[in-house]
Design a protein around this nucleic acid. Structure first.
Length: 212
DNA sequence: TGCCAGGCCGGGT
DNA sequence: ACCCGGCATGGC
């Protein structure tokens, strides 16, 4: 299994090169993006983040003091804007209450302790928590998402309906903890999913994983 | 035009 | 412990 997972990584990396994720200028912006991109096209998230920046609202304090309706209006392009406004608020409340609004201070917490705390925030599920841990806080945590399940199940690594924890345990049991590799691996999978590994394309023609 | 996008929650079984 | 409906915009 270790061989197969490293092989897949090497093939993707050779085919597409480094992805330099996460798209975002600061750890806080990465965390905001992680919430906004839930079941949502990244392009729409970019508009929402641009709105926040233009309004000078891309900070823990600004979001903390903003009304839910006003926040929802700014993030409207990201979809589910009412729920996401509340979720952003919950995350920001958590960040302010525990770490004075500082991602840097939150990063000092051991990730095995921090992960369940993040999961306790309403609106932060496993993928969002792990995206924040890996991409905003640079913790060696492997992120699983819909693409990962789709790609890996298609190549016989694991059944698609296995739960998140099983996929994550598979990767983290097989691969040494390595922040930059975990970062690239997940980004490459998403890139692959966007490009061609989709339900309408069962053959994956020309896919770098052909035969794996 | 309909389907899909880097999920998550709450209520029901 | 699972299953499902709801949440919503924009691109193709």
């Amino acid at each position: 299994m270790r061989r197969q997972l490293t092989n897949i990584y090497k093939r993707l990396y050779r085919a597409y090169g480094p992805q330099h994720w996460w798209p975002g200028d600061t750890p806080f912006e990465v965390a905001v993006g992680a919430v906004l991109t839930q079941n949502t096209n990244w392009g729409n998230v970019e508009r929402a983040i641009a709105n926040l920046k233009r309004a000078g609202a891309l900070s823990a304090h600004a979001i903390h003091v903003m009304g839910n309706a006003e926040l929802a209006e700014l993030i409207r392009p990201a979809g589910y804007f009412n729920v996401k406004a509340e979720r952003l608020k919950c995350f920001v409340d958590f960040l302010i209450a525990g770490y004075g609004g500082s991602m840097k201070r939150m990063a000092r917490v051991d990730h095995e302790k921090l992960r369940p705390m993040l999961l306790g925030v309403k609106g932060v599920g496993q993928e969002t928590a792990d995206s924040i841990l890996l991409y905003a806080l640079e913790k060696p945590v492997f992120v699983i998402d819909a693409y990962t399940k789709r790609v890996m199940s298609r190549h016989g690594v694991m059944e698609h309906d296995e739960p998140y924890e099983n996929f994550q345990a598979l990767f983290m049991g097989a691969l040494k903890p390595d922040v930059s590799m975990y970062n690239e691996y997940h980004a490459l999978i998403v890139n692959l999913g966007k490009l061609r590994c989709r339900p309408k394309n069962p053959g994956c023609e020309g896919c770098p994983l052909e035969g794996v």
